[in-house]
Amino acid sequence: MVEKKRDDVLQETPVSLAEKEIDGICMAFRESRNRPLLIMYYPEDRGSVSDDDVEALYSEFRRLGYNRDTKRIKELDVLIHASGGTPHTGYMMAQVLRRFASSVNFLVPYRAGGAGTLTCLCADSISMGAYAYLSPVEVLTEQDGALVSVDYFTDFAIQCWLKAEAALNREKVETKSSVETDLLTEFVKSVGPAGVANFYRQRTVAAKYAYRLLFDYMFASDPHREEKASQVSQKLMFSYPARDFHMDYHICMVLGLKAGEMSEDNSDMTRRIVKTMDKYTQAGVICKLTLKDRRAPFMTLYGET
Results as ranks from 00 to 15, higher is better:
R212S: 15
E165V: 00
K163F: 09
A296F: 08
D293W: 10
G256V: 03
R212P: 01
R201T: 13
Q231H: 10
K292M: 11
V188K: 14
T290V: 10
L255Q: 09
A197Y: 13
A166S: 11
G195M: 07
K275L: 04
R212Y: 07
A194W: 09
F187D: 05
G284H: 06
T276C: 14
L291H: 11
I273L: 08
Q231N: 12
Y217R: 07
F298C: 11
R294L: 15
R295C: 15
M262A: 01
D244F: 14
C252S: 08
S221Q: 12
E171H: 02
K279C: 06
S233F: 03
S233V: 04
V232P: 05
S221A: 13
Y217G: 05
A296Q: 12
V274P: 05
C252V: 05
S190H: 08
K163L: 13
K292S: 15
D265L: 10
F219P: 08
S230L: 12
G284A: 03
P193V: 12
A167I: 00
R170V: 07
L168E: 07
R271W: 01
K235T: 03
A220K: 15
L291M: 09
P193H: 13
F245N: 08
V285D: 07
T270H: 06
D216S: 15
P241Y: 05
E171L: 09
T181G: 01
L214P: 04
S177Y: 03
Y240E: 03
R243D: 14
F199D: 12
E186V: 12
K163R: 11
G192L: 04
Y249L: 03
M247S: 05
K288E: 15
Q202M: 14
A207R: 15
K189T: 03
F245E: 04
S230W: 03
K279T: 09
D248R: 00
R294P: 07
K258Y: 12
S233D: 01
K258L: 12
T276Q: 11
K208S: 14
F245D: 03
M262S: 01
V232G: 04
R294K: 11
H250V: 11
A220E: 04
H246K: 15
A296K: 02
A210F: 08
D265R: 14
L184Q: 13
L255M: 11
A164V: 00
G256Y: 02
F219W: 06
Q202F: 12
L289I: 13
R212H: 11
I251E: 12
T270C: 13
Y240K: 08
E174C: 02
C287L: 07
R295P: 05
G192S: 07
L255H: 04
Q202I: 09
K258E: 13
T185V: 07
E227W: 00
A207I: 09
D265E: 13
V179K: 07
Y240T: 02
A197K: 14
A229S: 14
K189R: 14
